[in-house]
Write a protein that binds this DNA or RNA. Structure first.
Length: 597
RNA sequence: GGUUCCGUAGCUCAGUUGGAUAGAGCAACAGCCUUCUAAGCUGUGGGUCACGCGUUCGAAUCGCGUCGGAAUCACCA
């Protein structure tokens, strides 16, 4: 039983004994005592004034006295206005440390202990251009959320859905055929996804020229866009692809294989992984069967031009197209098919889509249509909607060349880490290989932490030049704190000190030390909250607090030089546990911690 | 225009069942390295929590309205 639940129960007992009143659980409000007051846990007294019919001070006094007698952990209390501040004795906190020392997975639930399985889809790139900053946020969120859900005891399946078909890919293919001169990643030395992306850009530039040409001849913008030979050729290519034309399919396979190789490299560099990759080219047809069945069952309806629709007006939405008049499928059709396939294959309890908030409408409709079609799991689809990443100059636009490329960004971060480390002379005496690994860990740590510390729901601003810092509330700051701890532990070991597995619970500890223990105590609750709210930001902000608190402790107390061996060992053990929690929390964010830096 | 989301310090962000004097970091300024890694620690300044009204013992948090921003409402994905 946690100390909070003991107190909560005690307060209810007090209300019954003192005022003969039953109070509901949610009437008992506990919170951390604010730092400016003495105490650890605070009971809010206001809700009890009606039943006590006394002043807040008097009521607090009575409940406080009751609790102190009932609960041995409570050492004393004080009342400020309507707040009863309880002080928990040091013995309790030290015993708690003793409990978590042997626990290798402190903060985590047992793997697969909930019996709940959840599939997380993230990344979902198009194969016509390389990954950019927007994908970076998506990848980091998806990977971190998956880890957090695992830490909560769920069985998690991480999947990627590659959008490998459609007109956008034909544009790249066409441009490559016209202007590529047979260029390949090998002949150009270019990463495959970047090479293909270049032809997508080339297409767009040439297409614009054609449009301008037609407008100059007197056509409207809209007419010009439709008349341009390039777009017609691209559409023709798509039709050939759907008809399985040999040359087209071969080219498509070749260029996609370049892109996948490039993506794999980027994923590997970022440290994200998938259990299963789906390709839209393989799933897009399944949706049609589902729609046709819905039509037969009169759940969907057909318009005179043969297009198929779902009527969602009763649910407060519009009608939604599910099949075009020519019988081809749209985005929604594919997603219906993919969802069905996944639930059939994996029988998951929950499906989480990590997709930007620009698609809020799409996922509401997706879930609704599936519910209408009678799938019992339809309500278990969850859209983890995250905000856009904006640049100081505004939105990123591929066509205007204002995108921040994922590979460039990672490289830049690692280079910055290197420049910083070299300037500080931190890694003198390391081999080039060791040093490079540390630059990588720090550079990526800075990037990942910077993005994940922001509430996923919110749009965020990213300034590639100025936003990334290595001091303050940053990944490297937390990593640095970890290396400080590891350094002490190494030194202790060199001195022949064995950190004990059990601490004397009678020792006198300082306020800062207690603060740190209390923070570590919160970790499992933070992991739970992060899981239920799908928010890595909670973990990020927590681990920052831990690092900050530890640095203050580190500054205030000597550890290895402490003469009292019992106290010294306590501080060593506290440091070690702090290090473990930092490592564990950072791991949930997908961030590595170095042993030195 | 309809719907949804957002607006907290110069900048980037915390603040989650409503709770005490709204917190960090960056930037600025002032201190701390013969002592466990100064990528650290300490201090100073900086706020009409967009605005108004309401609910409440109590509102950054809940409700209504106004202003400002974003997304979306495609036979695009």
């Amino acid at each position: 039983m946690t100390i909070e639940s003991s107190i909560s129960k005690g307060v209810k007992d007090a209300a019954l004994a003192l005022y003969s009143a039953d109070v509901a659980d949610n009437q008992v409000q506990l919170q951390e005592t604010r730092k400016e007051f003495s105490g650890d846990i605070t009971v809010v007294i206001f809700p009890f004034l009606k039943i006590s019919k006394k002043s807040p001070e008097q009521t607090g006094q009575e409940i406080g006295e009751f609790l102190k007698i009932q609960l041995p952990e409570i050492e004393g209390f004080s009342i400020v206005k309507g707040f009863l501040n309880l002080t928990i004795n040091r013995n309790y906190w030290l015993s708690f440390l003793n409990e978590i020392i042997p626990n290798a997975n402190y903060g985590y639930a047992m793997p697969n202990s909930t019996g709940h399985s959840v599939m997380v889809e993230y990344s979902s790139p198009n194969t016509n251009k390389p990954l950019h900053l927007g994908h970076v946020r998506n990848n980091l969120l998806g990977f971190s959320v998956s880890k957090i859900l695992k830490a909560n005891g769920h069985n998690v399946i991480m999947v990627n859905l590659v959008n490998d078909r459609g007109i956008h890919i034909c544009k790249s293919m066409l441009a490559w055929k016209k202007w590529g001169n047979g260029a390949t990643p090998i002949t150009t030395g270019k990463k495959g996804d970047h090479l293909v992306g270049d032809y997508y850009v080339k297409f767009d530039a040439e297409y614009k020229k054609e449009i301008k040409h037609f407008i100059d001849k007197g056509l409207t913008q809209e007419e010009a866009e439709k008349q341009a030979p390039l777009i017609k050729q691209a559409q023709e290519m798509l039709r050939k692809w759907e008809a399985k034309d040999n040359d087209t399919v071969t080219l498509w396979e070749t260029m996609n294989s370049w892109v996948y190789k490039g993506f794999d490299e980027t994923y590997q560099k970022m440290g994200v992984t998938f259990d299963r990759v789906y390709y839209e080219s393989q799933t897009y047809l399944h949706g049609k069967d589902i729609v046709n069945k819905g039509l037969k069952d009169n759940i969907l309806y057909q318009k005179p031009d043969n297009s198929v629709w779902a009527d969602l007006t009763n649910e407060g939405f519009d009608e939604k197209l599910l099949l075009r008049s020519d019988g081809t499928s749209v985005y929604m059709t594919q997603d219906l098919g993919t969802a069905c396939q996944r639930f059939n294959e994996y029988h998951v309890d929950e499906m989480i889509y990590v997709v930007g908030n620009e698609q809020d409408y799409h996922f509401k409709v997706l879930s609704l249509v599936l519910q209408k079609l009678g799938y019992s799991w339809a309500s278990q689809l969850k859209h983890m909607s995250y905000g856009m990443v904006e640049l100081p100059s505004g939105k990123m636009k591929s066509r205007e060349g204002t995108v921040v490329d994922a590979d460039d960004l990672v490289t830049e971060m690692i280079d910055t880490a290197q420049a910083m480390a070299d300037e500080l002379g931190k890694l003198d005496g390391y081999t080039a290989q060791q040093a490079e690994n540390i630059y990588r860990i720090i550079g990526l740590g800075a990037l990942k932490y910077f993005i994940l510390k922001v509430d996923p729901k919110k749009n965020m601003t990213f300034d590639p030049k100025e936003s990334i810092d290595f001091n303050g509330n940053t990944g490297p700051f937390i990593q640095y704190t970890y290396t400080r701890i590891q350094s002490i532990i190494r030194k202790a070991s060199e001195m022949g000190i064995v950190i004990p597995h059990s601490i004397d619970t009678q020792i006198i500890i300082g306020e800062k030390e207690k603060q740190l223990i209390k923070l570590l105590y919160k970790y499992p609750a933070i992991v739970r909250d992060a899981g239920s709210m799908l928010s890595p930001a909670l973990i990020a902000n927590y681990v920052y607090e831990v690092a900050k608190e530890y640095n203050q402790f580190y500054h205030e107390f000597s550890i290895l030089k402490e003469e009292n061996i019992i106290i010294r060992n306590f501080r060593l053990a506290l440091s070690q546990i702090t290090g473990k929690v930092i490592q564990s929390a950072m791991d949930l964010l997908g961030v590595e911690v170095p042993e030195r830096m």
